[in-house]
């Protein structure tokens, strides 16, 4: 970021904030399972692509990075939908703690994503761009790797993350027992380590395993299965997913954009770099 760009960025931020507040529209929709889910929906200019922005692991659409993207895109005239995955909680409005009871499976998340893509398509959006943050990008990658809606034209994954398993002794034995419990349809709760939850992810074995399946290798394997263009925007100073991960993604054909100096959440002034990069990605695919 240069010295000359700072005033311009400040002005853009002010516009984004004004636009986001002025036109934000929380919605609640009852999902097919009966669960009420909410989302931030901001209608855009007619004829422009709709952008679905998905939050990261167990957060909500109110998460800061998501709101930055939503506000920027809405201000630029895009129709933006930022759903909150219910995680089996009606009208979930809060980030679900690790030690809460987790009954939602990875596939359930994909189903809700699919439902919200359909929700956009049902409203006449022929071009839909999926923008995700962290595991939200993973959900979208998984979604487009499996039969995505035809209206989905582009996936932009920011801080694309796989389901990381923190190193722990006896992890293999724990996986084995989890698989055994899943096979036995044992729904009892156990504590697992998952992403940033350290041995306090309280869930049945089937839930845990549904997420664990999307590890580094599985994600890289799925890259080749994607039927939608994929742009990846990575933070240059991401402590969890660094250069090695970026190289691996590149090696598997991903188009990588790096915001140097930014952390996993693109905090501070790096969010503008993120937005610029996103703009370039959209423009690259003629979706601006």
């Amino acid at each position: 970021m240069t010295q000359r760009s700072i005033p311009r960025l400040l002005l853009a931020a002010a516009i984004l904030l004004f636009g986001a507040v002025a036109r934000s529209a929380p919605i609640e929709e009852t999902l097919p399972g009966g669960i009420v889910a909410n989302a931030d929906f901001r209608p855009g200019e007619p004829g422009r692509p709709a952008v679905l922005v998905l939050h990261g692991f167990m957060t909500t659409h109110r998460f800061g990075t998501v709101q930055t993207l939503v506000g920027d895109l809405a201000a630029k005239g895009y129709t933006v939908l930022a759903p909150t995955l219910s995680l089996d909680i009606p009208d979930r409005e809060e980030t679900l703690p690790c030690d809460a009871i987790h009954t939602h499976r990875f596939g359930d998340d994909l189903a809700e994503l699919d439902w919200w893509v359909d929700w956009l398509a049902d409203r006449g959006h022929a071009s839909i761009v999926l923008v995700g943050h962290s595991t939200g990008s993973l959900h979208e990658l998984a979604y487009v790797a499996n039969q995505p809606h035809p209206a989905v034209k582009l996936v932009v994954g920011t801080s694309l993350a796989y389901i990381e398993q923190l190193p722990a002794p006896g992890i293999e034995a724990k996986h084995r027992r989890a698989r055994e419990k899943r096979a036995a349809d044992d729904r009892s709760l156990d504590n697992y380590s998952l992403v940033f939850c350290r041995d306090n992810f309280r869930a049945p074995a089937s839930v845990y395993l549904s997420y664990v399946r999307w590890d580094r290798e599985h994600l890289l394997d799925q890259l080749s299965e994607t039927r939608v263009p994929l742009e990846v925007i990575m933070a240059g100073n991401d402590q969890r997913f660094g250069q090695d991960w970026r190289d691996a993604l590149a090696d598997h054909g991903a188009s990588i954009h790096v915001v140097e100096g930014a952390n996993h959440f693109f905090d501070d002034m790096y969010e503008f770099e993120l937005l610029d990069t996103l703009d370039r990605c959209l423009a690259k695919h003629g979706l601006d």
Binding site: G34, I35, D88, I89, P90, D91, R92, E93, E94, L96, P97, D99, A100, I101, T103, R187, L189, R202
Partner: peptide
Amino acid sequence: NEVRQQLADPSYYVYWREQRLQAS
């Protein structure tokens, strides 16, 4: 949220009431 979660799916309600709620 978790109250609504339990009302929506009380499968783990006893655990939630006895453990999760106490620890929260």
